[in-house]
Each structure stands twice: as structure tokens, then as C-alpha cells.
Design a protein around this nucleic acid. Sequence first.
RNA 1: GCCCCCGUAGCUCAAUGGACAGAGCGCCUGACUUCGAAUCAGUAGGUUGCAGGUUCGAGUCCUGCCGGGGGCGCCA
Length: 583
Amino acid sequence: MLVVILTAEKRSARTCVDQRSMFLEGELTLLRDDIVALLAAALRKAQKKGDLPKFDPPAVAVEHPKDASFGDYSSNVAMQSARLARMAPVKIAAAILRHLPQVDYLAGAEVVHPGFINIHLNESWLARQVAVVRRAGPTWGNLDKGQGRRVQVEYVSANPTGPLHFGGARNAVLGDTLANLLAAAGYRVQREYYVNDAGLQIRKFGESLLARYAQALGRDVPLPEEGYHGAYLQEWAAELVRADGEHYLQMPRAEAITALTEWGVQRTLRDMERDLGQLGVRFDRWFSEKSLYEDGAFGEVMNILRGRGLLREKDGAVWFTATALGGSKDEVIIRSNGTPGYFASDIAYHYDKFVRRGFDWVIDVWAVDHQGHVPRMKTALQALEIDPARLTVVLYDLVKLLRNGKEVKLSKRAGDMVTLAEVVSEVGKDAVRFMLLTRSNEATIDFDLALAVQESSENPVYYVQYAYARIASIFRKAAENGWQIDVEADLSLLVHPAELRLVRRLLMLPEVIDLTVARLQPHHLTYYARDLAAEFHQFYRDCQVLDRQNEALSQSRLQLAAAAKEVLGRVLALMGMNAPERM
RNA sequence: GCCCCCGUAGCUCAAUGGACAGAGCGCCUGACUUCGAAUCAGUAGGUUGCAGGUUCGAGUCCUGCCGGGGGCGCCA
């Protein structure tokens, strides 16, 4: 292993101060990005001074090495440059290091075969960051990535035709957590539920409810073809009979369907809001599909499409000629029976989002079985002269619900369903959220109910919450024993490896938030939470916090523990979970 | 038939093209007279579905197979 000790070039003191102040002031800059900038500048300077040949340098990337002995950050830029520079990576790396400025947060850097540049943070600087985290408090981790841009996150949006089944829980948790993370990253976030209160399914729902209602009154009426078979409709029908008797059978059928549909939708939404609330999921707005037809959005969109020559009549239906814009096939917008299809609503809805409400960015959270709809939607945006890049569809795979290894089908129409509310009350909100959040979006989740209940006491979420409660307990103990907490504690006393590992982990939160937002993959947050808790538990084992024999060190450790509590609490909040003072 | 996703330890899953592929659960062994043992430390467990290719370097990218799921509707 070849090691080159960093020989720092003289840089003006001013530069050093500038570098340091960025972090001490808790500004929204990522340490990682700063190191990237330092390396890029050093590379350019090496070229300018003739230590490296002229070539167009690759983008500098740094990562946290898996092996801590390789430092806090490492970069492969020298290896990436080898071909371009026609030089050995190790030599390139050494040249870059010769021009790396001395910065207060860096302890040094080294070149390691086959050409990694490994960077070590200054440990006394690290210890001082405890104060930075403490000062930032609940805002620690916030970024200015969004720069106040308005983003809408639309999630759940299940048809309002009955209780939310458990499959919808994944959508809810994903969307809610993404919204939390986007807000932390500096976006102005609006959370929306799209209520499909128009169209064919809703009509089937109304007809089914009417049939159940009539049955409850002793009439021999069958459910409609492909109607809703769930037992909940029988319960609701009984409710209606108790409240209104034969009222709905005494009016014309069409009128009764309209009235019962309206009643059923309201009933459903009330339950959904309650059940989602139990899961910690809330919305800023419940947007009615029907309103798109009532307030003219749909008409405007049709005019635009017609004006651009993108509508054509065929077989009695109105088609959107997506193929004219490069789409794979044309799509029916208005059926031959004169009713608009779901695609018509979706175009109008997105027109409303982008044009009428002016969101800079729209994120739709869809289950993977809607994947085929993504290119259609993008083409539709193109047709409306909206940049399709402003729409991101987050697709997630399905949840396969099992009970003792046997699959339970989740179908509202078939009626064999496990509801979100049941699972939340059986397993617990925090455990459900954690389990659903831990998997990457593309992974199918096998969720065994029996296993989930049984494992919930072993669930990682309790591991994280326990760390939080443990810290709370330290502070209770401190108060009982008359400790006066010193906010100005001497942080330079924090030199133990377990202390510094914990500090390092605290400092990673901004990067984790950045990662989850850049990739729209909140599952990274759960792994961070676990790692952070583990780091604390190890610190707790190795470092007695309250020690009358060493009060100065105790004060420093209390500050570190307070910072850890703050960050753990923040992470739990971002994931939508409770941070218990005791458990 | 065409398109998309997945295949990693017994199970459930991680791993921005990097260094020796990691956690949790489960199994086994230790640690509570000291701030909470819902914890910690350690052991065992792998041909990353298969075969090629690109690359200094592949679980990751490309091609072809095998297996699982999803999509290709005047349903949403």
C-alpha cells in the first residue's frame, strides 16, 4: 500500500476561514459537495501548474468507503482520469493531493493502490460539530436543494369505493415520507389525494350499493356485472335502511344511484381519512375528478388538443393521436358511448396541476401495475406543451400479503380483502411504516401478517426508538441527580472512537436526505436510522455519560447525547414515527 | 409475441461502477453490584439464477438464456 502524506500547499488563511464558516453557521451546504469542489479545484490547478497533462476532467465523485480505515470519504477520480491523462492513477492522485488546500476540517489525505484518494476528517473539527448540530436543532439535515420550488406529491388516490386495502398502505407511506423529505430538502410541498369520483368504477360502486340496499329491504336484486362484492357494502346498506328506510327505492333508479354514489363516496372518504390518519398520513387537499368536468378544465384541454390537431374520431370514439408525437399507439379519450375515459380525466388533471396551479414539479406515486400509463401521460404533457420532465412518476412494486405463508388476495371488487385499518391495529403504526419503508421501491414486499405481529417486538423500529428512549432516560437521570446541563461544554474532550463514530453518523443526515430526494427512494432513511441507533448503543456501552469523577467529560457527552437525540427524533419524524421518551 | 421490474446468507432485505458483498430475524457462545439487557460483543452461514461481454475494477452496465411478478383494454 503506497501512502503519500498530504503536503499542503500554502493557501490564504481567508480561504480556510471561508471553508469552515460554511459548516459552523449550519448553512445548507453538504460537506460532501465541498470536498468534491476541493478535489476538482486541485485537479484543475495541477493541470494549470503542469503537474498533470491537459485533459477534460471527469466529474469528481466521492463516497463513504465501507471500510472505515479507508477514511471518511474516498474518490476514484484519479482512476477515472487515467486513460484521459495517459498516466498511472497513483501518480495522478498524488498530483491532485499536492494541490489540495489545507482546510480546517481535513486531517489529511492519502493515495492508496490502485489509485483511490482517501480523505480523513479532522477529529477535533468533528467534535466541534456537535455544537453545530445542537444549534441547528430540528432543522439539522435541511437542505436548500429545492430552493423553494413548488412540488406536488400525489399519493394513495385509491378509488373511493370502499375501505382502503393494505396494498394502499405502501403507497401512503411512500408518498407521505417522500413529501416529508422533499420539505426537508427545501421544496414547498403540497400533498394531494386524487379522488376518482367520476367514471365507470364509481358508477358500478353506486349500482352495487343500491343493489345491497334493495336486498337489505328484502328485494331479490342481483349485484351488477363486475360489481363490488365486499361485505362492507352490506353493512352500509343496513345503515342506510336504518337511517332512511325505503327512501331510495321510492325515487327513480338513476336518481337513487346518484344519491347513493354520493353517500358512498363521502362515507368512504371519511373512513379513509381516519384510517390514513391512524397511519400518520395526511393530505393538504383531496382533489375531485368530477370537478375537472364542472369547472371547465376538461373542456380547455379538449380545445387545446383539437387546436393542435391531435384528436381524431374513429369507430364513434374520440382518440388522442399520441403516435403523431412519437407515442406507441393512439388512445381513446371519449368512448363511443360519449363518456370520457380515465385518460381524459388524467390529462385534464395534470393540466390543472401544471398550468392552472403552476407546480414546478409534480410527483405521482403509482403502483407498478400502472407502469404502462407513464409514457402515455408524458406524451399527453407534450401535447399540452408542458415539459414532461416536470412530471416524475414514482413506481413501487406490489405488496403480497400473506397469512402464515398463504397468500391473501387484495381485491376490493372480489371482496376478499385485508384492510389497512386492520393491519395497523394488529401490527402497529410505527412497525407497519418501518416495514413498508425499508424496502426499495422496486422490490415486491412479502408481508406476512402473522410474522409481522410476532416480529413486531423484534422490529428494527423499536431498536431505533429504544435508542431515543435511552437518551431520554439519561437526561431524566441527570435531572434527578441535580446535573446542570452546560451548553458550552468543552467538546474537545470528545476523542473516544465511539464518540467520534457517533458524531460522524450525525453529520451524514444531510447527505442521506440528499440521496433520498435525488433518487426518490426513502428506504435509505430506515437504514440510516438503524445505523445511527447502533452507533449510539455502542457509544452508550463504551462511554459512561454521567460520571461525578469527571464532570467536564460528562458535560461534553451530554451534549453529544443531546445531539444524537435530536437527530434520532428528526429521522423518526421524517419517517412518520413516534419518538418515545420512554417505552 | 413485445415492453418494464425482480432473482444476493436458512428467512426478510441492503449495497451513488470501487477496496474483503453487508444488516435484521433465526441458530450457537459470552456480558447486567455502574446512565434502561427492547442492549452489547462474538461464531457459523455466499460460485450475488446461468453463460458470455465491456472495464484498471461488475451484485451493479451490455447481450442471450432460466425462473417469478407486472404491463400491452372504448377498466383505473
